[in-house]
Computed example of a mutant assay.
Amino acid sequence: MQLQRLLPNVAILKKYGVKESSISFLTVYYPDSLMMRSDELVKLVDKVTELGMDPSKSTFIYGINALYCMSRSTWEAKKKAYHKWGWSESDIHMAFSIHPRCMRLSKKQIMSVMEFCVNEMNCDAKSIARRPAVLLYSLEKRIMPRCRVVKFLMVKGLIKEPYNLLSILTIAYKTFSERFVMKYDNVPGLLDVYHGKLSLQDLGIDSSELAKAKLV
């Protein structure tokens, strides 16, 4: 039965322009995605394409797997969470096409990261739709300490230019530590902010000052 479904489904993906390397990856790491009925796979591939994903790109298979693993009600619940932050349908489609895993996050993860980035860091909610990888990082272990340190340094006038939120999160731990922590470890309060012992408000930094220090 598995082979009877696998071969026709592989042929369908090839017909849509999915590369053999992507099909091989899907077969090895997400084999269940190829075990559905062929008519269901066609509907799924059409849906992923409608959401803005290119079958010839390697990310397309992640879109297939993301939709395969979600019920319609779960998909709608995730959309509703993003709508609460002002995302339009096109914003959601764009984010999904860039990083399909953003729709597989728990509602709690979505809401907590958006809450922090928008309300505490003053980031534009829609800009996160263009950088959905932001949502995948650990809020407590990566997003909070890094963003707070950079904001702290900006408010203190120690770094000037606006910093890209995603670039702050993606750089290696050692690089971030050397560039933003160890270089300024003599600044009172910095290490406590980085290690979560003090908030920016604990250091007397008010919301108006934070609003001026932009993470883009």
Rank of each mutant, 00 (worst) to 15 (best):
Met1Glu: 06
Gln2Gly: 11
Gln2Val: 06
Arg5Glu: 09
Ile12Pro: 08
Leu13Gly: 07
Tyr16Gly: 02
Lys19Met: 11
Lys19Gly: 08
Lys19Trp: 05
Ile23His: 11
Pro31Val: 09
Pro31Asn: 08
Met36Cys: 08
Met36Gln: 15
Ser38Gly: 11
Asp39Pro: 05
Leu41Tyr: 01
Val42Leu: 13
Leu44Ile: 07
Asp46Leu: 15
Lys47Trp: 14
Val48Met: 10
Val48Ile: 13
Leu51Cys: 12
Ser56Lys: 12
Ile61Ala: 10
Tyr62Ala: 07
Ile64Gly: 15
Ser71Arg: 11
Ser71Gln: 09
Arg72Gly: 07
Ser73Ile: 07
Thr74Gln: 06
Thr74Lys: 11
Trp75Asp: 02
Lys78Ser: 10
Lys78Asp: 01
Lys80Gly: 12
Lys80Cys: 10
Gly86Met: 01
Ser88Cys: 02
Glu89Phe: 09
Ile92Lys: 00
Ile92Phe: 10
Ile92Asn: 02
Ile92Tyr: 02
Phe96Tyr: 02
Ser97Cys: 00
Arg104Phe: 03
Lys107Pro: 15
Lys107Thr: 10
Ser112Cys: 05
Val118Met: 07
Ala125Glu: 00
Lys126Asp: 04
Arg131Ala: 11
Arg131Lys: 15
Leu135Pro: 14
Leu139His: 09
Glu140Ser: 13
Lys141Gln: 12
Met144Leu: 13
Met144Trp: 05
Pro145Trp: 09
Pro145Thr: 10
Arg146Ile: 00
Lys151Val: 05
Phe152Asp: 05
Val155Leu: 12
Gly157Met: 04
Leu158Arg: 12
Ser167Arg: 13
Ala172Lys: 15
Tyr173Arg: 14
Lys174Cys: 08
Ser177Asn: 11
Val181Arg: 00
Met182Phe: 15
Asp185Val: 06
Val187Tyr: 04
Leu190Ile: 04
Gly196Ala: 04
Ser199Trp: 04
Asp202Trp: 05
Gly204Arg: 03
Asp206Glu: 03
Ala211Arg: 13
Lys214Ile: 01
